[in-house]
Every structure is written in C-alpha cells, then in structure tokens.
Design a protein around this nucleic acid. Structure first.
Lengths: 125, 125
DNA sequence: ATGAGTACTTACCTAAAAGTAAGTGCTTAC
DNA sequence: GTAAGCACTTACTTTTAGGTAAGTACTCAT
C-alpha cells in the first residue's frame, strides 16, 4: 500500500530507530549535550561552565557533571593548588560525539535562520 | 590559565553552543527525533508509527504529531477512501535532519556495542 | 574582620512530560 | 449483532526534570 522508497530494508530502519532511542537515553534532556559541547571545546571549571551554558543552575550543573562523569564523557581533575582547582575535561569517548555535535550545531544554525526569516515575513501581516 | 587548544575562537564556540541549544529546543524530548526518523524512513499511518516507535502511547504520539506538523517537519495527508486513510509524510524540511539522524544513529550503535562489552566484562567480576 | 570567589550541597517546590485507562465514532468482517 | 481495527480524544495520575533559594566550607584580598 505504502511503497518503501528507502534504499535500506525494513530491518536496517528499525535498527537505526533503536540506535537513536539508545543514544537519546544517555544524551537526552535539556543540558547533557550543551554541557558536553562546552567541555569538549576546552577544559573548564565549574563556574566557567555555569557561565557559558547560560541558564543552568548550579544544582542542575552539579547533577549533570556527576552523570556525565559516571558515563565516562568527562573527567573531573582535582589539582592540589591552594585552594584546589577542579577542572572538567572531555574524555576520548566524548570526542566520539564530535560529529553528532557538529551536525546538530549546523542544523541549529540553519534552523535559527529559517525561523528568523519566517518571523520577518509575519511582521508584514 | 587553561590553554585554548581549539582551532576555533571563543566566539565560534559560544555560537555553536547556542545553536545546539536552539536545535534541542525544537528537537528535545524523548520522542521527537524517533518519530521524525520513523516517518522519514517512509510515510506511515498512526498505528504503524505507534507500533514501530515502541513504547509510545497514542496520547503522546498524537501530541508529537501535532507539534511536528506545526513545526513543518511532517505533513498529515488525508485520503478520502472509506474509511479515510491518514498518512503522515516527511516534509523536505525534515530531510535537513538526515545528517543529524545518521550521526546519532551511528553513535547510538557504537555506544550500544560499548555498553554491551563493558557489561560482559563486569560479568566476570 | 568583612566581603568576595570557588565548588558545591541541601531542601523545597513546581511545571511539564509522560504514562494509564478508558471512551468515541467510524467502518468492515464474521 | 458483535467484535475488531483505525485514529484518535479525554480525564486522570505519576514521574521526573528542572528551578529557587539558601547554606557550607574553604581561601584570598583589602
């Protein structure tokens, strides 16, 4: 009834759906990808991250950092300076997300542009 | 203090963070990307989608479909058969998400593999 | 000694997302 | 005529993500 116009078979489709759901299971939520991106860009301390990822509260950031550390996306380095400096660093594993992050950022940029255009159109109505 | 080991300047970094947050604003949540992927793979009806995206309830699916239609990711085609068939179709705009979806799926697949391996390791402890 | 900064934690609260269960109005099949 | 399928909707509840505000323990600068 509905033609299967896809190159991939049904199984491969079902699989990629499953994989996307799996990925979203670890990366889902409002802050995980932004925080990872922030740290991937360069190692940072708590307050720097909180400042860059605008809108995140210290509580939520602490939560996310713990979660990301547990899932091996970031490393929490404690330097024995006085007072101790704590620097969050991206692991090699989080670098496997670079393509995802790049595509998402590119898409977000284009989407923003599209929204901006449709807004200015509506302004004339 | 912390060296900026990135090729991109600070501004470009801040921008990509912003874009990712923007993207997540429309695509965030548990079901949006899975539902889009499902429909991008081929046009489908309500019950087919509900069956493929396992775990989604009819209420949530109806909600997501409305939202995705409003945001121009999908089209709701009503065919005047008896009874009417309603077929959800991906728009050209949702095709701009193909790269994002592909990267996410690839990553999810590798992540699943990694988890599987670390699980079997733990089984011997 | 007062205030500011770092890196959080704690307690509390609310709003939104999601789940459950059932119902509706239609049609076709048995 | 009874049941089942389609495409939902409605009402209700639960979950959980996230926000607010304040506090803590430390140190450094003035």
């Amino acid at each position: 009834m509905i033609p299967d116009d896809n190159i991939l078979g049904k199984e491969a489709c079902a699989d990629s759906l499953k994989y996307v759901i799996d990925a979203l299971y670890v990366l889902g939520g409002k802050w995980k990808l932004p925080v990872i991106l922030c740290i991937v860009q360069s190692s940072k301390r708590f307050n720097e991250i909180q400042h860059e990822v605008s809108g995140i509260s210290p509580k939520v950031l602490a939560q996310e950092l713990k979660d990301l550390e547990m899932n091996d996306f970031i490393r929490r380095n404690v330097y024995p300076t006085t007072p101790v400096s704590i620097i969050y660093e991206a692991t090699e594993y989080s670098l496997t997300l670079k393509n995802v992050l790049r595509e998402l950022s590119t898409w977000g940029e284009q989407h923003r542009e599209r929204i901006r255009r449709s807004m200015s159109k509506k302004a004339y109505l």
